[in-house]
């Protein structure tokens, strides 16, 4: 099982949304991280055949992205999706099942099983327009699994879910990644940190890093410090170092920052995490590079 993205680019008029991205993905969960406008959604849409790449090619086990068989192996949750106004949760699932080529008996059985999985069985016949954001998102996740996809692409799947639901879905996604390719795009760093075996970091259309958590945090390992100081001292430090986090604690300020050389007095070295790396790359901290 292999998804190949070969030097894929996407241009919108004079803006490069995705710039020659190449990937080879196998079974497992891949977390795609990046700020707004980094090109994540464009890349994901191209992987799902919704957008045509300006150049490059995408294939799954030798099947081109435009093939019907490719789409038959795909489960996709877009960042924003709607529904026809007359649809109940069950109607929506049946409709998606018909588009995925499932027969009626299979569609009925799968719908029952998946609505149970996402805890929507008791509201199966209710109109989707009465659902909360979280319920709608759960329904969206359920429809991706109707055809038991080998390639599962989820764009912001945990957006709108409460912390308990998020953790439940995190575990579900991790389980699904055992025998298929799961490509997960999100802003929620902790989701990626917990479940993604490989992290893909995108910035300005380019793939900055790809690798395990240990691999990609290598860049700032041993360079992240934390210290509690007076407000005016903290202001001084923000001019000198890339700041990862700035938090008031009573009269003082707890500062987390990246320091390449000797740290200021009182600063303690801390373990670098994915959030540190994310903030380092995607906040004003990069200006100090």
């Amino acid at each position: 099982m292999e998804l190949t993205v070969d030097r894929v680019s996407k241009l919108y008029k004079n803006k490069i949304a995705v710039d020659r991205v190449s990937l080879r993905l196998h079974e497992g969960v891949y977390g795609l991280l990046g700020e707004n406008g980094a090109g994540k959604t464009s890349l994901i849409r191209m992987v799902c055949g919704v957008l045509k790449p300006s150049s490059g090619s995408i294939s799954f086990d030798g099947l081109d992205v435009g093939d019907e068989e490719y789409r038959a192996a795909l489960g996709y949750l877009p960042q924003d999706f709607g529904y026809y106004p007359e649809f109940s949760a069950q109607d929506f699932m049946y409709y998606m099942a018909s588009l995925k080529g499932l027969t009626k008996p299979v569609a009925r059985a799968k719908t029952r099983e998946l609505l149970e999985l996402v805890s929507l069985s008791d509201v199966a016949k209710k109109k989707i327009r009465t659902f909360s954001g979280g319920m709608k998102q759960r329904l969206g996740i359920a429809q991706t699994l109707l055809n038991d996809p080998k390639l599962l692409v989820l764009d912001e799947p945990t957006a709108g879910l409460d912390p308990k639901e998020r953790i439940r879905f995190r575990n579900l996604i991790a389980r699904l990644g055992q025998n298929r390719i799961v490509l997960l795009s999100t802003h929620i760093v902790s989701d990626v940190e917990h479940i993604a075996g490989t992290i893909l970091l995108m910035k300005k259309g380019k793939m900055l890093h790809q690798g395990s958590l240990e691999d990609i945090t290598q860049v700032i390992r041993g360079k992240v410090y934390q210290c509690l100081m007076e407000n005016h001292e903290a202001q001084e430090l923000t001019r000198l170092y890339p700041i990862i986090n700035y938090r008031s604690q009573g009269e003082k300020v707890l500062l987390r920052f990246v320091c390449q050389g000797d740290p200021p007095a009182g600063a303690v070295k801390v373990t670098a995490g994915l959030e540190d790396l994310y903030l380092y790359y995607f906040s004003e901290a990069e200006g100090h590079e």
């Binding site: 055949g49 019907e68 789409r71 996709y76 529904y83 998606m96 588009l99």
Partner: peptide
């Protein structure tokens, strides 16, 4: 234009029977 009006186009385009077939 119904699919786009109700934001269903993206889901329909990525399905086995794509938006064009629908």
């Amino acid at each position: 234009g119904r699919s786009q009006r109700w934001d269903m186009a993206e889901l329909e385009m990525s399905s086995r029977f794509s938006l064009k077939s629908v």
